[in-house]
Amino acid sequence: MPTPAQAIRHEYLRHNKKFPHVWCPGCGNGIVMGALLRAIHHLELSKDEVVLTSGIGCSGRMPTYLDFNTLHTTHGRALTFATGVKLANPALNVVAIMGDGDATAIGGNHFIHAARRNLNLTAIIINNSIYGMTGGQYSPTTPFGAISTTSVYGHIEHAFSIAELAVTAGASFVARSTVYHADLIDRLIEQAMQKRGFAVVEVISNCHVQYGRRNKLGGAVDMLKQFKEQAVTVSRAEKLSPEELEGKTTIGVLVDRELPVSTEEYKKVRRRAHESGDKV
């Protein structure tokens, strides 16, 4: 009997691609990829009913390594392609995998409107606070004061929270984890893929090469230790004051609610139009 790790490697990786993968040693993208595969494996989905879409970025490379129906698309458009796939065939399980720049800078508009429409999709956002692939420019989640190649004397803008943005925009399910909490990522992705409605999983990840190093946060191991120390669970965060939550990362399910889902409403509105007898 193969172990679960062996089964995942054999079944879901595209062995005609070059391994080890392209990511830097210790990059959190690989940890998220493992969690995604364990979640799909645990849900016993057939590979044919899963569609992975991504944009451009280090994180965007993920679907190219994975043996599902995959679309490696243009920067910021993982969700647009995912929307098209879902509308064409609502029976498919569609997951968009994005970086923070991909999802919230160039793709920010698509992201908030996908959440507002509450499409029946899953969005995984690997938030490493930087544009990794292009050499470390600041992204919408780069903290105030941080050093990047486009903020060499300290960043003068403020970061926003991806998860809170998704909640405000109307997503049915919003959750957060960090790459240190890998088993939590498995569970959150599993819940998100089962959720009726737009489901967002934000994973705080390490780009020690483009972000950690410049900001004196150390390497992959150091950054994972920081994620461990900074994390507070949702239930514990409820008992803390805003001052105490400063510099902390809340992990777990932030929102899980039942809302009308546009992919289902679309079917209903077509029926209503048909039954009205109007000649349109």
């Binding site: 790790a5 995942i8 080890p20 993968h21 690989g30 940890i31 493992g34 790459v179 890998a182």
Partner: peptide, 16 residues
Amino acid sequence: CRFCEIHCPDFAITVS
């Protein structure tokens, strides 16, 4: 505990 296995970004560990 499999901590090593699920945190290896390169799928290079098997615990059995």
